[in-house]
Amino acid sequence: MTAVRDGLLHIVRAGALTTVQDAGRPGWAHLGVGRAGALDAPAARLANRLLGNPPGAAVLETTVTGCAVRPGRTVVAVVGGAGSRVTVDGRPVAWGAAVRVPAGAVLDVGPALNGVRGYLAFAGGLEPEPVLGSRSADLLSGLGPAPLAEGDTLPLGEPAGEPPEGEGPTPWPGAPAELVLPLHLGPRHAWFTAAALRTLTTAAYRVSPHSNRIGLRTEGPALARARDGELPSEGMVLGAVQVPPDGRPVVFLNDHPTTGGYPVVGVVPETALAGAAQAVPGTRVRFVRA
């Protein structure tokens, strides 16, 4: 194969779901535009830091099956987040550390060995056209670059900073064996029975395979409502634990709707959501009062 000499990143294998993500699009919820952004924000920031990028430079977020890309010019890249086997033109290279990818070589990120979401960062970042100040794909509202498909290309940015030197091994948190989510009750915990609130903080829930970038769905005992009826649409925050009619809590992640009509029993702090991004289906979930 002839090397493509250009400033583009070519998608060779898109994987199950690979999207462009940065620090997201806060400040537009009043127009119905959600936050979006990397689900495991600390992992995306760390990958950028290892390359000397600004913390909010755009990266690729992969889901379970990894992806493969071919840069049109030589780039330095970091693969982090979910652990995986990484190769350049078939040769194993380091995961979680800066690697050089020659122009035209294929950087392959294998399936997640632990965790769900991998992050591919490139020195200089990815530079598709920003929408409302962000390059993040929002899968609910359809803003930002569409999920990647084989044959797509993305502009690579010019590296600006130098990677930090002299750092020891980088601590990447792995996928949680058990997902412990601190919970601030409210705003609508009064819509649930006292028994339901006890159940919520004592029962073992599990991560549902139907989880996505909109929310971490759970399997477990249903929460009984103390009052029926519909809640008129109201604003929703990141980390809101919404309880739909089936009674199983859903933890809102970055592509959550900005308003909703099901009661929110409590809110998980943003700092606890990176674990939710990496918890594989079946992982035990415990909600604990914050």
Binding site: G27, A29, H30, G235, T259
Partner: peptide
Amino acid sequence: VREIVPGARTVLLDG
């Protein structure tokens, strides 16, 4: 305040 999000009968002040 990062977000001021009106709803049907509410206003959310977030961030």
